[in-house]
Design a protein around this nucleic acid. Sequence first.
DNA 1: TTGAGTGCAAACGTTTTGCATTGTG
DNA 2: CACAATGCAAAACGTTTGCACTCAA
Lengths: 148, 148
Amino acid sequence: MLKEQQFFTMLKSRGLRLTRPRRLILEHLSDGGTHACAESIYEALKRGNSTLGRATVFRALKLFAQLGIADETQPTTVRRRFEVAVGKPHHDHMTCLGCGAVVEFSNCAIERLQETEAKRRGFRITGHCLEVRGYCRRCLKLGRGRGH
Amino acid sequence: MLKEQQFFTMLKSRGLRLTRPRRLILEHLSDGGTHACAESIYEALKRGNSTLGRATVFRALKLFAQLGIADETQPTTVRRRFEVAVGKPHHDHMTCLGCGAVVEFSNCAIERLQETEAKRRGFRITGHCLEVRGYCRRCLKLGRGRGH
DNA sequence: TTGAGTGCAAACGTTTTGCATTGTG
DNA sequence: CACAATGCAAAACGTTTGCACTCAA
């Protein structure tokens, strides 16, 4: 669990400040347990803190993600993308957070393991999406994605 | 590859019609190769077909997905969700298309295989998201999710 | 000829941005 | 006291919807 002192240090080293909203939002994200969205955090905190703005929550979450304190549960869908589902070999994606490049890959063993997990739960799979996030070779060479 | 006659039959059996925009959009999705979004399809087709409307593309893509002709490449994110990334056990999701239920699971072997694929490509993983879509035990019992 | 499908524009819900104000370090 | 961060309102963005018109069967 992240201590407030650690948080303060992380911010300070980048010339950033530990403010009341940031403290509250991080606290809520930690305690709330499961995957929270900006709106639910906003609503929860707004009750006890009537001046909080939505934009602040969005800005804080983005910051936390950049600092590696928080992660997005699902990959960010900017625009919905579709592909023909008939007779096409499946593939997954590695998305580079540095340059946006998308590396495609496929691995049958992963698919088989998914199938195993699904069977165990009586779940019938019709499709899946695996998105790996991180930094590509080129960005790592350029020094991006070092501190995580 | 889906033949036009097949497409026509699929539509007709549901009282739907094979229209010029639908034919063009499906064609583009097939030929275009990679994951297309509504906007890119719209722009591409707009050039040769000046009366096409954006809404038509969105409606067609939704229809194709319902018919099983097309699949969404990424899971649909309504609101971005975040979780604390420090000292929390990772888990993935199985989402039921019948009732919306989310089944959580985790499998280290899958994670290791991802790592292997990443290493092979010089990619450094900072996170990932795996969403399996299909039908849960309960919905299957109720007869949902039978047709392919 | 009928009603499914379209194009347009306006509405929607989530996220971002501009800017004057606040408050941390 | 400087300037990072905020709250607000307006803009931006992808998507959906209402409606009169069109066109496939």
